[in-house]
Amino acid sequence: MAESVVTDAMRAAIGVEGPPTIAEVTASGIRLFARAVGHADPAFYDEAAAKERGYRGLLAPPGYLGTPVYRPGGRDPDELGQRYEIPYKRILNGGTTYEYMEPVVAGDVITSRSRITEFRERAGSMGPMLITYRETLFTRQDGKVVAKMRGNIINY
């Protein structure tokens, strides 16, 4: 096992909530996501079909929590809340779990707030790796938490 790459700055980042990200749940975003997956349920494509099933609007498919509002130039690392450097340049998504409290529909505006819950280090087949565990809460415009995501990112 290589020397630990977890620094004091990283340990200090655990549990600290990052800045909010705003995402818009749009009808086009829903249809594009559903199409990309290959969904056939009309509730993802036809607003009338979704409303007939009791939803407030076009239903968002599992895993779609809106499209983040894009700004040219991106956001600087300070604004993103990451105040530490990782010595590995390659990155993989390690896993994702979504928990839903409420259906998400077109027209919703979702604010997500994320915090790191844990760092783990492992010697993988591709060399030493750092696994960052994160939890994200998704809150709707009316203040209701609609979903929670737990995920991990692998740097190696």
């Binding site: 990309a36 997956v37 599992p62």
Partner: peptide, 16 residues
């Protein structure tokens, strides 16, 4: 293939 796409496939499996 994107990991998140495979996760979304599992979402479809369950949704259907």
């Amino acid at each position: 293939v994107h990991g998140a796409l495979k996760n979304a496939f599992l979402g479809q499996l369950l949704h259907d």
